[in-house]
């Protein structure tokens, strides 16, 4: 039997909104560690890794490891039926091919349950080694989303370049070119407004903006985003999930031939 209960159900709604456009079907892995997912987009260019640790839930029971294959669009449809203040419980019994989502209003006067069919999904689980990154940028997530959105009206790709001057986001297209430079700014009133750049080596990498824009769907989850880059490695764009885990997006760079 598997059961988890999350009082702040809106977190789960936001998590689904953050991954459903990138991935159609995915296996959720349930273990004593927590509720996790690793899935690639259909073109194998981007990967999303989600971890919600068991300690982060008000109740978490996982008698044995379980993989639940779900269609994310359908799961998002069901979670949309939960109110933002609702408590969400996810339940699956051993040997059944369904999962139940239960939503309780804060005052307990409305309780709904939605049952969804599970799927068998053949998924390739990639081994992602721990890496030391040459440059790590921490910045306000809304600022990063704004930059990706603005640059996608200029071009299809973004060049991200980290030097000791700061981080430069550049795009070029038929109508012209754009450069946005963010400098380190640690002297802000609120830590969530800070931009911190840790650089061992200067790095310049090029990425498809379509994917970056899709990653920024996670912006409502966290005030800050962390972008980790090394030459010729996929970038990691990470959003923390309220002290209980993270969503990490990996994106392969474009290489000039």
């Amino acid at each position: 039997m598997f059961e988890l209960r999350l009082v702040q159900g809106s977190l789960l709604k936001k998590v689904l909104e953050s991954i459903k456009d990138l991935v159609n079907d995915a296996n959720f892995d349930c273990s004593s560690t927590g509720f996790s997912l690793q899935a690639m987009d259909s073109s194998h260019v981007a990967l999303v890794a989600l971890l919600l640790r068991s300690e982060g839930f008000e109740h978490y029971r996982c008698d044995r490891n379980l993989t639940m294959g779900m269609n994310l669009a359908n799961m998002a449809k069901m979670l949309k039926c939960a109110g933002n203040d609702d408590i969400i419980t996810i339940k699956a019994d051993d040997g059944t091919d369904t999962v139940t989502f239960m939503f309780e209003s804060p005052s307990q006067d409305k309780i709904s349950d939605f049952e969804m069919k599970l799927m068998d999904i053949d998924s390739e689980h990639l081994g992602i080694p721990e890496a030391e990154y040459e440059a790590i940028i921490r910045m306000p997530s809304a600022e990063f989303a704004r930059i990706c959105r603005d640059l996608s009206s200029i071009g299809d790709t973004v060049v991200i370049s980290v030097t000791k001057e700061g981080v430069r986001f550049s795009a070029r297209g038929d109508i012209g070119a754009a450069n946005i430079v963010c400098r380190q700014n640690a002297t802000v009133d609120k830590p969530e407004d800070a931009t911190i750049i840790e650089m061992q080596e200067p790095v310049t990498l090029t990425f498809a903006l379509r994917y970056m824009n899709s990653f920024t769907k996670a912006t409502p989850l966290a005030e800050q985003v962390t972008i980790s880059m090394s030459s010729d490695l996929p970038v990691v764009v990470e959003y923390k999930v309220a002290g209980m885990g993270y969503i990490r997006y990996y994106l392969a760079p474009k290489i000039e031939e």
Binding site: H44, L47, L126, I128, A208, L233, K254, E257
Partner: peptide, 14 residues
Amino acid sequence: LWLQRILVLYFSLP
């Protein structure tokens, strides 16, 4: 010409 690489060039399949 820009070539879009895929993730399996960087990460291993089990």
